[in-house]
Structures are given as structure tokens and as C-alpha cells.
Design a protein around this nucleic acid. Structure first.
Lengths: 140, 140
DNA sequence: GTTCCTGCAAAAGCTTTGCAGAAGA
DNA sequence: TCTTCTGCAAAGCTTTTGCAGGAAC
């Protein structure tokens, strides 16, 4: 969600989260890839530079960072948890043909939701599924 | 999603899905409960009347019905898959305190999503999380 | 010196698969 | 009769937990 160093360090101090070598790398990976990786993809991707990195650490890091609001958890598909570090409000579109996940801007806050008048909304997620232009083109 | 008998039987015939005794009961359960049960909850709930019902059947039925577009799959939380049979477009709010899932009306179609101009959107899901009024009241 | 983190191994939980017998069309 | 469905057992996956050693502050 946010990755400015100031906000980040402040938020982490409050939650008593230490920025170990592994955690910095996981954050860097998320910030550089922007393709909503799964825990497994992060693990595989980072093993090249950190051969000893364990999946346990990847999971515990992602859970801690999600808890602190530093990363966003994506559950667009039930059998896979993905992670995102983008700040702005946006939706996620998953192409059912190629599996790619696209970000799209959407003003979710402007949605009329009168039913939720007295609800305290902390997190909003918008998930679309279908076929992306590339895959539509290949079908013709 | 839809549960008018005409549409239902038509849709099922196209997909070669047979309406066995077990499947009718699962559909009835979804239509009567409307509380977005998990596969496990459906299984437990129906075992009273159908003691031999297996989880395999529940899963295969739900997959078949979701595939046919008869039920809607809800992935608001990663570790649980829930099912819904309501027709109208609506979002889901999960209270992080009591776990209850509330439906709310939301005109998702009206959302401006210029980024997805050439995308074929087949499914739209809106998930909110936070605290419901009941739990907010209890905290005070 | 505390507190938190890492990583191995094991466990837990949900969902799928293989298969033989049963049921539906 | 042919196709699909059921339910048992087993397997497959992702994620969590327990714990001892190590690192951070």
C-alpha cells in the first residue's frame, strides 16, 4: 500500500516489526515486480539472491506487513493469496485465459452503499474476471 | 445467482448437469439460508437429513453449479470459499470481529473503469471488510 | 539482555482425484 | 444402455505452528 520510507518505518515501529535483511528484500521484490506475486513466487524469485530464504519467513513477513497495512492482500482466486504494494485505490482484473492480473483505476469510494451506513469500513476490494484484450485477439 | 426453475433446468441441460437428490437439497439449502455458507457448513447442515452425504459430493456439486453460473463463489477471505445464490448485483461486507457476512446493494456496473475498455468482463465482485454496527456497539 | 526473527520439520486445513458401485436419462 | 453422480480413501496444496538457534535493538 504505502512504501515511503518515513511512513513505513513509523508504522513498523508501532507494530514492533523489525526490518531484517529478508524483509527488506521481500519489500523490494514487491515494489519492483508489481505483478501481484504469490508467496511461492516471492520465495522462488528471491532464492536466487538469498538461497537460505525459507517459505516460513516469506509467510510470516507477508502476514506481518499485511497486518501493519504495508502490503495489500489479494484474494481474487480462492486457492491463491497474492500480495500488492500499490498505494492508490484500484481494482484487480484476472484474465481467466492467461491468468494475468491487471490493475485498473476505480473510484470505489464513490460507490453508493447506503446499506452500510453505520458500518466501519476498513478495506475495500474490487475483483473482476473475464478475458483480456490479448486473449480475445488470439481467439479470432 | 438465478434460481427460477425454467432458467435453472435450461442451464443445467446445456451443461449436462443432472439434478440428483443431493444436488436439489444443496440448492434448497443455499436458497433457504442466504448466509453464504462454506462447503463444510453445507455438508454439516445437510447431514441431518441426508446422513450419507459426502463432502466430495458437496464440492463437486458446488463446482458444477458455479461453472453453470447457478451459484456465485465468494472469496472474501483466502482460507474459505463461500457460496451464494442471490441474483442481483451486490457486494459483500465481512465483519472482522464477529465474522458475519452482510450483503449490500452496490451499483457496480456504474463504476467508471476506463482502463478496461477492451476487456470482456464476466464477473464482478466487491468485497468490504471492517466492523459491523453490532460489534461497534459492543466495544463502547 | 530482551525481544523478535529465521528456518527446519511437522501438522493442519481445505480441496481435488481415482475408482467402483449406484443412480439418472 | 450410456452417461453422469456418489462416496470412500488417498493425495495435493497452501498455510500455520512448535521450537531451537541467531539476529536486532
Amino acid at each position: 500500500m504505502k512504501y515511503s520510507n518515513e511512513e513505513l518505518t513509523t508504522e513498523l515501529k508501532i507494530k514492533h516489526i523489525r526490518l531484517s535483511h529478508q524483509r527488506v528484500r521481500i519489500l523490494d521484490y514487491l515494489a519492483s515486480q508489481l505483478n501481484h506475486p504469490t508467496a511461492d513466487q516471492i520465495h522462488t524469485g528471491l532464492r536466487k539472491e538469498i538461497p537460505t530464504l525459507s517459505k516460513t519467513t516469506v509467510y510470516s513477513t507477508l502476514n506481518a506487513l499485511a497486518d501493519a497495512g504495508v502490503v495489500r492482500v489479494i484474494h481474487i482466486e480462492g486457492n491463491e493469496t497474492r500480495y500488492d504494494i500499490r498505494a492508490e485505490d484500484h481494482g484487480h482484473f484476472k484474465c481467466e485465459s492467461c491468468g494475468t492480473i491487471y490493475d485498473f483505476t476505480a473510484d470505489i469510494d464513490s460507490l453508493a452503499t447506503g446499506d452500510l451506513k453505520n458500518f466501519d469500513i476498513k478495506d475495500r476490494n474490487l475483483y473482476y474476471k473475464g478475458t483480456c484484450p490479448t486473449c480475445i485477439g488470439e481467439k479470432i
